[in-house]
Amino acid sequence: MTRHDAAVVHGEAIPKARVDALLRAVPPRDRETRPESLARAERQRRRWATQVVVTDELARRACADRGLKPPSEVSPALALSVAGTDVADLGSIVATALAHSPAARTLLAELEREQPVPEEAAREYYTRNRDRFLTPDALRRGVEPFHGAADTDFVPYERARAGIVRDLRRAAGRRAFFDWLDQARVGVQYAPGHEHPGDPSHPDHEHRH
């Protein structure tokens, strides 16, 4: 690893220039004014950006291994459009990586496609979450879904099934993506100042993803 590298992924160096490009595109979230706080925030931002770039690199390799061909150009600017709900659901590293990296999006889509959704799982979800399937009329009337509601107050399972399967497959695909990323990051080497933001081996670590 040279002084120009941010990390080494399975023997291949990741240049700091890729991290710098992402940092230029994404403004700081924290508006610190004290010099020591600003310096700490910038260190964490660089570590965070390194994780996004490493995720992109790992996803490119995973796509190549699977014979998938994502678009070749990443877009640092797309990281600006990450929805707050995605950050809450996925963490900022993964949410930004998915916005930034066509390879990560392609891999996630493939992992979602691979997830089986048994019929019994879809039916169980429908039964356990009856409040989500009230008809518009039942909602207007203030029907209590778990006490005294009639069958006609609910969207029939046959009509709800496709959406349930889609949502369950999406959730399973996200879990598979996190599992893949945890395994893929094993063995990645980081240059000083580019470690994971939550790495306890450096003194100002934090676990905000």
Rank of each mutant, 00 (worst) to 15 (best):
residue 190 Y to S: 01
residue 171 A to V: 10
residue 31 R to G: 13
residue 47 R to Y: 02
residue 105 R to P: 01
residue 25 A to F: 10
residue 56 D to R: 04
residue 177 F to P: 00
residue 147 H to R: 15
residue 52 V to T: 01
residue 119 E to A: 12
residue 138 A to M: 11
residue 113 R to W: 02
residue 89 D to T: 06
residue 27 P to F: 07
residue 43 R to N: 04
residue 76 P to G: 05
residue 18 R to E: 08
residue 187 G to C: 07
residue 41 A to N: 09
residue 3 R to V: 01
residue 133 F to Q: 07
residue 141 R to D: 11
residue 33 T to E: 14
residue 36 E to F: 03
residue 203 P to Y: 03
residue 129 N to D: 05
residue 189 Q to T: 15
residue 119 E to V: 11
residue 170 R to L: 11
residue 125 Y to W: 09
residue 130 R to G: 01
residue 137 D to Y: 00
residue 86 D to M: 05
residue 107 L to I: 04
residue 145 P to K: 13
residue 41 A to E: 11
residue 12 E to A: 14
residue 190 Y to A: 04
residue 143 V to D: 08
residue 145 P to S: 11
residue 9 V to R: 09
residue 81 S to V: 02
residue 8 V to W: 02
residue 87 V to A: 13
residue 112 E to M: 14
residue 60 R to S: 07
residue 145 P to C: 12
residue 133 F to A: 09
residue 104 A to T: 04
residue 71 P to R: 09
residue 77 A to W: 09
residue 148 G to K: 11
residue 37 S to V: 00
residue 14 I to V: 15
residue 61 R to V: 08
residue 86 D to A: 15
residue 135 T to P: 15
residue 207 H to N: 15
residue 160 A to H: 02
residue 199 D to T: 02
residue 61 R to T: 12
residue 60 R to C: 05
residue 155 V to L: 10
residue 195 E to W: 08
residue 198 G to Q: 00
residue 30 D to Q: 12
residue 92 S to Q: 08
residue 1 M to W: 06
residue 118 P to D: 01
residue 203 P to F: 01
residue 11 G to W: 10
residue 207 H to M: 06
residue 26 V to S: 11
residue 183 Q to H: 08
residue 50 T to F: 00
residue 115 Q to V: 02
residue 35 P to K: 10
residue 191 A to M: 05
residue 149 A to W: 07
residue 42 E to W: 13
residue 197 P to K: 09
residue 66 R to Q: 10
residue 31 R to N: 14
residue 5 D to T: 13
residue 173 G to W: 07
residue 78 L to Y: 13
residue 13 A to H: 11
residue 192 P to S: 09
residue 32 E to Y: 00
residue 18 R to M: 04
residue 139 L to P: 00
residue 192 P to R: 02
residue 71 P to N: 08
residue 17 A to K: 12
residue 105 R to A: 04
residue 206 E to A: 15
residue 145 P to W: 14
residue 208 R to C: 07
residue 131 D to M: 09
residue 45 R to D: 10
residue 121 A to E: 14
residue 108 L to I: 05
residue 157 Y to Q: 08
residue 66 R to Y: 02
residue 164 I to C: 10
residue 74 V to D: 10
residue 39 A to F: 08
residue 54 V to A: 06
residue 80 L to N: 15
residue 11 G to C: 09
residue 68 L to G: 01
residue 23 L to I: 15
residue 51 Q to W: 06
residue 19 V to P: 04
residue 12 E to H: 04
residue 170 R to Q: 12
residue 108 L to E: 12
residue 179 D to L: 07
residue 24 R to V: 09
residue 108 L to Y: 07
residue 34 R to N: 12
residue 182 D to Q: 14
residue 31 R to E: 15
residue 166 R to P: 02
residue 67 G to F: 02
